[in-house]
Design a protein around this nucleic acid. Sequence first.
DNA 1: CACGATCTGTTAAGTAATGAACAGATACTA
DNA 2: TAGTATCTGTTCATTACTTAACAGATCGTG
Lengths: 181, 181
Amino acid sequence: MPKVDRRILKTQEALKKAVIELMYEKNFDDITIQDISDRANVSRGTIYLHYMDKYDLLDKLIENHIHELRNICVSTADMDFINGTLVCTEYLEHNYSFFSMMLASKGAPYFRNRFLDFLIEEFRNEIDVTKGKNQGLDEDVIVRFVASSYVGVVEWWCKNDKPIPHHVLAEQLGILLERNL
Amino acid sequence: MPKVDRRILKTQEALKKAVIELMYEKNFDDITIQDISDRANVSRGTIYLHYMDKYDLLDKLIENHIHELRNICVSTADMDFINGTLVCTEYLEHNYSFFSMMLASKGAPYFRNRFLDFLIEEFRNEIDVTKGKNQGLDEDVIVRFVASSYVGVVEWWCKNDKPIPHHVLAEQLGILLERNL
DNA sequence: CACGATCTGTTAAGTAATGAACAGATACTA
DNA sequence: TAGTATCTGTTCATTACTTAACAGATCGTG
């Protein structure tokens, strides 16, 4: 790892934080590059040193989180579903402002789909339709079934402002995943 | 005003914030330049672009706040004591982490004295021993009397974790100042 | 429609911050 | 005591960010 300059990390952090904050306040399409640079306290031109435009910035922001989740899946591959999911919900908890904004706000179907695709891809590695409880079922069907329910539950959790602690969420989701995979 | 580069403001902000945070955790003498640069997420060498050493940094930090308080005194010169003091306590409230750290921590007599000197200087402008209720009193005595009591009350307020809202503090201090000046 | 205002994306020149290195100071400890 | 480790203050070349300016796009309003 070539170790990136801390200035790069700082401005990118500031920009991402600014976007999240602004998305709480207005629709993404109504957010201007100037809004973002003002909020992040960064020169407007600097944004273009890192991103093509505001859509690219949002993209990278989303992609980062998906990437992190993917890493978590790799590192928890040998855990059971409850403990593996616990690591995931810890990540959700820790980045709650992002996920709740992306899932609870009306105008963000883009992330929901991106999240769903990621989960489908992950669960496809878990499923085995040649033996066990899912023998004979269609892989596409069962994968889609589980991924959709997972997104739905996380959506519910975010939209309702964390009605249960994240570790309880992990436990319950873990049980349900265990039952279906 | 030549308008300073926002990078300068950002690093100075980060450094000041870092010092305040660290002073909650340990004695100022035990804080190293490295601690500060690490906490502020700034390169160590950068500190020396702005300050001579950590004592200079602390000095400037204190001086900034005294300077702001002085400006407040100028801008409130034509208000009565209650409303004028309200603007001051708003400033205390807004920078509570700084003032409480500086006044409530054991090892910070330096700021207390700096604050006292500032108040003496300010009250000297207010006092008139040639007429009114203080006619015949010694200027040094009355100025010192009022300034000491002011510091004492603010110290009490900080050490006891804001036992009353700042505007109540302002009102009561205003009455007491009115009575003595 | 024309207008003023605002936003965009890009450029250029200047400035601040960076990481890495350095010798010297100070402190711990074996 | 020597040896190790950490901190300091400074330097240097490189990089990222800054401001200011620019023309062109978009938008709402008279």
